[in-house]
Simulated assay, not measured.
Amino acid sequence: MVWFDARDELEELFRKIIEKNISINKITHEKNEILIDLLWGLIWPLIIGLPILTVIIYGVVYLTSSSITKLQKAITDRSPNSLEKIEVSGLPKEISPLLNELNSLLSRVKVSVEHEKRFTADAAHELRTPLAAIKAQAEVIRLEKVLEPAAFDNLIESCDRASRLIEQLLALSRVETSVSTFEKDDLSISEFIAQQIAYAYPQIDAKSQVIEYDDSGKYRVRANKTLLEILFRNILDNAIRYSPPKGKINVSLNQKGSHVFLSIEDSGPGLTQDQVNKLGIRFQRFGQVDSYGSGLGWSIIQKISEVEGLDVHLSMSVELSGLCVSIRFS
């Protein structure tokens, strides 16, 4: 607007000069007036606008720093043991993502700490039984005048159970608390299963059981070898444990479409639907025929299946009338 007014005044001045209707002094006077009006038109918006702009900037900085101060106070006032989400309202949208990421980190830390606490509590609780048995058998051996082989057998069995329990607890803790991704290997599942059966054969032979392995092809899958070994050994151990002496276990591999399926069938009593629903509850045992099991097997199986992206399905074995565990590899 200032420039338009100055332009009109300049045009009027030039017209008067051309028509010689104005003196030199008058030209100088009107020129100075035009310059003064032009400068004043430029300066007064700054005089008014700068204080307003200063107030606006101060308000924005104050509100932002106030939000950061509230966030700082919320963090400072927290107990070192508190891992709950930080709740601060009215944060600017630029700071909200930072708080969301911080809360996400706290949630992950909380889960990890809870796993560690549960692991410690479970270990302390479950190790009491085998350790008490070991102590009792040691006291019997000390008091007996004649050392009976049965006493040593019971002592060895208690040691084996404690060792098995520690092994299972450590396996479960490793899978649950791992923060890194387990690398997958290109694995010959056919050779892998044959090797695992060979490792377990002394247990099978001790119960005079029969195991059949049907490998109709040389299949390969992508899986973490260590985790798959823990998973398969737990399923096979359950099949051996729950199948009766001279019972039968079938292990088979086959492919349907792009998926490889591993099935383990046993001749045990199987599971009711209610028992299937309770699988994964720690230290839960169903009609255990020996004291060797830890009750952690299915917790480990379910967690590894989740980590590896495996689909585990339970059903009744048509041939053996026991439990059939089917694993689908993705």
Rank of each mutant, 00 (worst) to 15 (best):
A133Y: 07
I301Q: 05
K218A: 10
G268W: 10
E101Y: 10
L105F: 13
L53C: 08
S96E: 15
A162S: 11
S315V: 02
K16Q: 14
L253F: 02
L187F: 00
V318T: 14
S23Y: 03
S243H: 02
V55H: 04
Q288A: 15
S330H: 08
L83D: 01
G297L: 08
R118W: 10
L127A: 07
R142A: 15
L46I: 13
K73P: 05
D37L: 08
L236F: 07
A151F: 13
E87T: 10
E114P: 03
S294N: 04
Q195I: 04
A132W: 03
H115G: 05
P97A: 01
V55C: 02
E167S: 15
E212L: 11
S267H: 02
F4H: 13
A194Y: 03
K20R: 14
V260L: 01
L187M: 01
V140H: 10
D5A: 12
I36W: 14
K303T: 01
E94T: 11
W3R: 12
E84A: 13
D214H: 10
V61I: 15
E94Q: 06
H313Y: 10
E191V: 03
L106Y: 04
K207Q: 13
L99H: 00
V175Y: 00
L10V: 07
G293T: 15
L53K: 09
I235E: 13
K303G: 01
A162N: 07
F119T: 02
G287A: 12
S291Q: 14
W298A: 06
L172W: 01
S330Y: 06
S330E: 11
V113Y: 05
I95G: 03
E12V: 05
S79H: 04
L71P: 05
V109D: 11
L13C: 02
L38A: 14
A171F: 10
T226M: 13
D214L: 12
K16G: 05
D290G: 04
E183Q: 10
I57P: 03
K246C: 06
F14P: 03
D8L: 15
S299C: 11
S267R: 05
L253Y: 01
D160R: 03
I189A: 00
N103D: 02
R174I: 05
E126G: 10
D160F: 02
S294Q: 08
S79I: 08
A206F: 06
I240Q: 05
T129E: 12
F14D: 09
S65H: 12
D122H: 02
G293Q: 14
V60Q: 10
L236S: 05
I166Q: 06
Q275F: 04
E183W: 02
A194H: 05
L91G: 05
A136K: 15
F4G: 09
G295W: 09
Y62W: 08
K278P: 00
D77E: 12
R78M: 08
I235K: 07
N254V: 10
H115C: 07
T181C: 03
S158N: 07
K218D: 12
K26S: 11
G247R: 04
N103W: 01
E229W: 02
I240A: 04
I22V: 06
K135L: 15
S305W: 04
